[in-house]
């Protein structure tokens, strides 16, 4: 179904990453992002690529799913490669008027595009192996220290999880409203751009009205069930940071430090 693609696209198989604590995965991903931006020579580039490849094998996610997650960024990947190829100074390989492609440009362009691809794949490795609930729980737990500087962490996490809960419900509702307006003779595929934009209005008004009504009732229901904010509230699902999770974060950290030493010290 469509909504599951929208929200994090969790892919249910059993793997080490699927069982890992979401906090460990978020921190590891964060370290990996750092590593990606620190890399500059060929060996380091091969290093981060191999590392991600190992990650993909561990997660047992089929290649097709990973390629699918690249679809939204294909445009940016191509754009980055092309821009770099034209912009970077170096030995000219091809020239047409003032436009010229350099060898350094090609090399840099390919690497930039590849870096974007690695970035996307590593991020989807997190979303494909983590349910939206576990992800919000993990985020809430990691951000908890921000409570001290008055960031409403619990409230934000609750908002995200309610939004996730209502995405499918609201999508069904949208469908229904579109059908209802079509039954009244509305045509969404005809007319000029201006007309089409105007046609969206009769969809938005009932949609927002009903969403407001839902929000009202949900607030009543939550209050009736004793909700009083985050203080004094416990959770059924407890996140447990195991030795394996510790190892995952530690290994990634060692890799990061190694990369740092390789680039600046050795």
């Amino acid at each position: 179904m469509k909504p599951t693609v929208l929200i994090g696209q969790y892919y249910p198989v059993d793997s080490f990453f699927h069982r890992s604590d979401p906090r460990a995965k978020i921190v590891t991903l964060f370290f990996y992002f750092f590593a990606l931006f620190m890399v500059d020579d060929l060996y380091a580039k091969i290093g981060v690529t191999v590392l991600l490849f190992i990650g993909v094998l561990i997660a047992r996610i089929p290649l097709k799913m990973l390629l699918k997650s690249l679809k939204p960024v294909v445009f940016f990947v191509v754009l980055t490669a092309v821009l770099n190829a034209f912009m970077i100074p170096g030995e000219v390989v091809w020239q047409w008027g003032f436009l010229k492609i350099t060898d350094a440009g090609i090399y840099q362009g390919i690497w930039m595009a590849w870096r974007l691809i690695l970035l996307m794949i590593s991020a989807s490795l997190l979303t494909l192996t983590t349910t939206p609930i576990a992800f919000t729980d993990g985020l809430e737990s990691l951000l908890k220290p921000l409570n001290m500087i008055k960031v409403p962490v619990h409230e934000l996490a609750m908002m995200i999880s309610i939004a996730l809960r209502f995405i499918p419900t609201l999508m069904e509702e949208g469908e229904r409203i579109i059908q209802a307006q079509m039954a009244r003779g509305m045509d969404f595929h005809k007319g000029s751009l201006k007309e089409r934009i105007k046609n969206i209005l009769p969809l938005l008004v009932p949609f927002f009205l009903s969403a407001m009504k839902r929000a009202d009732e949900l607030a009543e229901a939550m209050e009736s069930r004793g909700y009083h904010g985050g203080s004094g509230r416990t959770r059924m699902r407890v996140l447990t940071f195991t030795v394996a999770d510790m190892m995952l974060v530690a290994l990634m950290f060692v890799f990061l430090v190694g990369l740092f030493l390789y680039r600046w010290v050795l």
């Binding site: 839902r214 004793g226 059924m236």
Partner: peptide, 24 residues
């Protein structure tokens, strides 16, 4: 629809007891 808070059945049932602050 408007009284279900969580995105799985068991999480939703747990919502009330969680508000009571019971052990997991």
């Amino acid at each position: 629809d408007n009284q279900i808070v969580a995105s799985t059945v068991e999480e939703d049932t747990a919502f009330g007891p969680e508000n009571l602050g019971l052990p997991p």
